[in-house]
Amino acid sequence: DIEITTNGEEDAKRVIKELQKRNLEYHIEVHGNQWVIKVR
């Protein structure tokens, strides 16, 4: 598993777009303004 910590929603959406392009499965956890994306 890979864990990507982003700085808020805009940053997270940019990362998610890339993950979707590669058809990767991911899970999002929001901790305040930090979005942690866990990639399987």
Results as ranks from 00 to 15, higher is better:
residue 36 V to N: 02
residue 37 I to D: 00
residue 2 I to T: 07
residue 13 K to N: 11
residue 28 I to N: 00
residue 40 R to E: 06
residue 24 L to K: 05
residue 7 N to H: 12
residue 18 E to K: 06
residue 37 I to Q: 00
residue 15 V to I: 15
residue 40 R to T: 12
residue 5 T to A: 06
residue 34 Q to N: 10
residue 6 T to F: 11
residue 40 R to G: 06
residue 1 D to C: 14
residue 29 E to L: 07
residue 4 I to G: 01
residue 27 H to R: 13
residue 21 K to T: 07
residue 17 K to Q: 12
residue 39 V to G: 01
residue 35 W to F: 06
residue 25 E to F: 12
residue 22 R to P: 01
residue 30 V to Q: 09
residue 16 I to G: 02
residue 35 W to Y: 07
residue 2 I to L: 13
residue 2 I to C: 14
residue 18 E to D: 07
residue 20 Q to R: 13
residue 28 I to Y: 04
residue 18 E to A: 12
residue 15 V to D: 00
residue 33 N to A: 08
residue 28 I to L: 08
residue 24 L to A: 06
residue 38 K to E: 02
residue 24 L to R: 05
residue 38 K to T: 14
residue 40 R to N: 08
residue 9 E to A: 10
residue 5 T to M: 11
residue 10 E to L: 09
residue 32 G to F: 05
residue 33 N to I: 05
residue 6 T to D: 01
residue 31 H to Q: 10
residue 13 K to R: 14
residue 6 T to Q: 02
residue 20 Q to N: 10
residue 25 E to Y: 12
residue 15 V to M: 06
residue 22 R to N: 08
residue 12 A to Q: 02
residue 36 V to W: 03
residue 34 Q to G: 04
residue 16 I to A: 05
residue 17 K to P: 01
residue 12 A to P: 01
residue 20 Q to D: 10
residue 38 K to G: 01
residue 5 T to Y: 15
residue 29 E to F: 10
residue 5 T to K: 11
residue 27 H to C: 13
residue 2 I to D: 04
residue 4 I to M: 03
residue 23 N to D: 06
residue 18 E to W: 15
residue 38 K to H: 11
residue 31 H to S: 09
residue 26 Y to E: 00
residue 38 K to V: 14
residue 12 A to I: 04
residue 1 D to I: 15
residue 1 D to P: 10
residue 10 E to R: 09
residue 2 I to P: 03
residue 38 K to D: 01
residue 9 E to T: 05
residue 26 Y to V: 04
residue 9 E to D: 04
residue 10 E to N: 07
residue 31 H to A: 07
residue 24 L to H: 03
residue 4 I to Q: 01
residue 27 H to T: 15
residue 22 R to V: 04
residue 24 L to S: 03
residue 18 E to I: 14
residue 3 E to F: 15
residue 22 R to L: 15
residue 37 I to G: 00
residue 29 E to M: 07
residue 10 E to W: 10
residue 29 E to Q: 08
residue 24 L to Y: 07
residue 36 V to E: 01
residue 30 V to F: 09
residue 25 E to G: 08
residue 21 K to Q: 10
residue 28 I to T: 03
residue 5 T to V: 15
residue 32 G to E: 07
residue 8 G to S: 15
residue 26 Y to A: 03
residue 1 D to M: 15
residue 34 Q to A: 07
residue 35 W to V: 05
residue 40 R to P: 07
residue 3 E to G: 03
residue 30 V to A: 04
residue 18 E to R: 08
residue 29 E to H: 06
residue 29 E to I: 11
residue 7 N to M: 13
residue 40 R to K: 13
residue 24 L to E: 03
residue 17 K to H: 10
residue 40 R to M: 13
residue 34 Q to H: 11
residue 27 H to Y: 14
residue 10 E to S: 07
residue 23 N to A: 08
residue 33 N to S: 10
residue 18 E to C: 15
residue 7 N to Q: 11
residue 38 K to R: 13
residue 34 Q to R: 13
residue 17 K to I: 12
residue 21 K to E: 12
residue 2 I to N: 04
residue 9 E to I: 12
residue 32 G to P: 03
residue 12 A to R: 03
residue 22 R to T: 05
residue 37 I to V: 04
residue 20 Q to T: 09
residue 2 I to Q: 06
residue 35 W to D: 00
residue 28 I to E: 01
residue 9 E to L: 11
residue 17 K to Y: 12
residue 40 R to Y: 13
residue 26 Y to I: 05
residue 5 T to P: 05
residue 34 Q to M: 13
residue 19 L to C: 05
residue 30 V to L: 07
residue 10 E to A: 11
residue 13 K to G: 06
residue 11 D to V: 07
residue 31 H to D: 06
residue 31 H to V: 13
residue 30 V to E: 03
residue 15 V to G: 01
residue 14 R to V: 08
residue 22 R to F: 11
residue 12 A to E: 01
residue 25 E to N: 10
residue 40 R to A: 09
residue 38 K to N: 04
residue 13 K to E: 08
residue 1 D to E: 13
residue 21 K to D: 10
residue 27 H to F: 13
residue 14 R to G: 04
residue 15 V to S: 02
residue 17 K to M: 13
residue 36 V to Y: 06
residue 9 E to G: 06
residue 12 A to N: 02
residue 36 V to P: 00
residue 6 T to P: 05
residue 6 T to R: 05
residue 21 K to M: 12
residue 9 E to Y: 14
residue 17 K to S: 11
residue 1 D to V: 14
residue 36 V to K: 05
residue 39 V to R: 01
residue 35 W to A: 02
residue 40 R to D: 05
residue 27 H to I: 14
residue 16 I to N: 01
residue 25 E to L: 13
residue 28 I to Q: 01
residue 3 E to D: 06
residue 14 R to Q: 08
residue 34 Q to T: 13
residue 12 A to L: 13
residue 5 T to F: 14
residue 25 E to D: 11
residue 33 N to W: 06
residue 16 I to P: 00
residue 16 I to S: 02
residue 36 V to I: 14
residue 23 N to I: 03
residue 2 I to H: 09
residue 23 N to Q: 09
residue 4 I to V: 05
residue 32 G to N: 07
residue 27 H to D: 12
residue 18 E to Y: 15
residue 10 E to D: 10
residue 35 W to L: 05
residue 13 K to M: 15
residue 29 E to R: 06
residue 19 L to V: 03
residue 24 L to M: 10
residue 40 R to C: 15
residue 14 R to F: 10
residue 3 E to H: 11
residue 11 D to H: 12
residue 32 G to S: 03
residue 16 I to H: 01
residue 33 N to V: 06
residue 32 G to Q: 05
residue 12 A to D: 00
residue 5 T to I: 15
residue 8 G to N: 15
residue 14 R to C: 13
residue 27 H to M: 13
residue 3 E to V: 15
residue 23 N to V: 03
residue 1 D to G: 12
residue 30 V to M: 08
residue 35 W to G: 01
residue 26 Y to D: 00
residue 25 E to A: 13
residue 23 N to M: 09
residue 1 D to W: 15
residue 15 V to F: 08
residue 23 N to G: 15
residue 31 H to K: 12
residue 40 R to F: 14
residue 31 H to Y: 10
residue 19 L to W: 02
residue 21 K to G: 07
residue 3 E to P: 03
residue 4 I to Y: 09
residue 36 V to G: 00
residue 33 N to D: 12
residue 16 I to R: 02
residue 9 E to N: 04
